[in-house]
Nucleic acid binder design. Sequence first.
RNA 1: GGCCCGGUGGCAGAGUGGUUAUGCAGAGGACUGCAAAUCCUUGUACAUCGGUUCGAUUCCGGUCCGGGCCUCCA
Length: 446
Amino acid sequence: MNLNIFNTLSKKLESFKPLGDTVKVYGCGPTVYNHPHIGNARPAVVGDILVRILRNLFKKVVYVRNITDIDDKINKKAKEENVTIEVIALKYTKIYQENMRTLNVLPPDIEPTVTQNIHSVIKMISTLLEKKNAYEAENHILFHVPSFKNYGDLSKRKKDEMIEGARVEVAPYKKDPMDFVLWKPSKEDQVGWESPWGRGRPGWHIECSSMIETYLGETIDIHLGGNDLIFPHHENEIAQSNCAHNGKPLSKYWLHNGFISMDKEKMSKSVGNIILINDILKKYTGETVRLAMLSAHYKQPLNWNEKILIQANKNLENLYDIIGDDKNYKFVPPPKKFFNALLNDLNTPEALKELYELSKDKNNKDQLKSAANYLGILQLTQTEWIEQKKKIKNLDEKKIDKLISDRDKARKEKKFDEADKIRNELAIDGIILEDSPTGTKWRISN
RNA sequence: GGCCCGGUGGCAGAGUGGUUAUGCAGAGGACUGCAAAUCCUUGUACAUCGGUUCGAUUCCGGUCCGGGCCUCCA
């Protein structure tokens, strides 16, 4: 039983060996200024699966996923709505947590916020100033990139190559164009905290470094995040933490998930192709969204569209048919082939294949259920699953039952034209009828 | 311009130097008043051009195409 994961740092598949008795995992969480979209969900789902596996393999796992509740995007939103940033942050934190719960993402062990950790941010910046890795310029504290010689190791970029392609004007007070802000001054009307450098707020990258230090220590086992965070966010985290901790590495393994796109194009606000989780949940269950997400390997790009949701829904429909309403499952270890697929860099498509194979043997429900637990699917009974779908569709069950009994009457009288008419009417609303010796059942098509 | 990642059957999507991925959809059959569901049967795909090889979808190189990062971004 050996977990292999692709490490961005080495760009190789590596065998996972924990540093100590406690496996420490950190995932970059959301900036809470808006409704989460499916892109936000992917790293959370990937992290969730990884942690489920780690908990099977190791006795103690601590998983930290932060909430970034101070950011200029939050400030902007608060100003627009004429409320404090706490109101905005709290609102969207709750929505995020609720969305994740719907997707069967288990909560992390610790979910720290930046505003609760300003003191540790200030502490780390002070350390970086002492060690001459940072400097003050026009009320800003900046990290001096040339002071860290391994800068670019994660993203495999060379410094001069980056500057060549830079598309943004460099602030004149920077000693080096690559230098980035650790602390910035706040104006009267902006949120801020007192610090040795005046009233201000943290820059973008320092919060993760300092929260990792606070909650997990100097070096962790695995750091997670979306592909886009490799540069500059994670590169900068590494620089800060390394320098603050006398060259100790921040994380042994780095995992990055691929992007979700729409029509082969990245989701972005300017294109207007952002898909919010809440909007999908108006039509599909969270479990359906989760399965659709797991249908591709986490490192691969995933093109999001209705087809993959329809397919995932159908798959769940079939699987719940086998699971049924029996709640008395025996606890069994996960099937070997299935688990091996997950151990191979979380190969969920391969694992799903094994799951479908297991589902063919109807006397094997215990194993099927055990496997599904690792993927975070099939957590309900079939009845609960159907109830959930009925709720989403907001169906008038009494009306449906009435139509079905009308149809049964017509069938008994051999008025098949009339019976078929009723069935077709129901089909328009997505209701499929199934006649059986014990009566007529109905289900929702998607 | 620099750096990355891809191109697999109708669709989604793994994997492999020579043997069925899997799922969804489709087709045929059984069943049914007709359907649905279910069961059975069915599908020979790996961008392109070279190279290595007894043999390449799989390895190497070129080409074309697509996507991402280099700026806030999951």
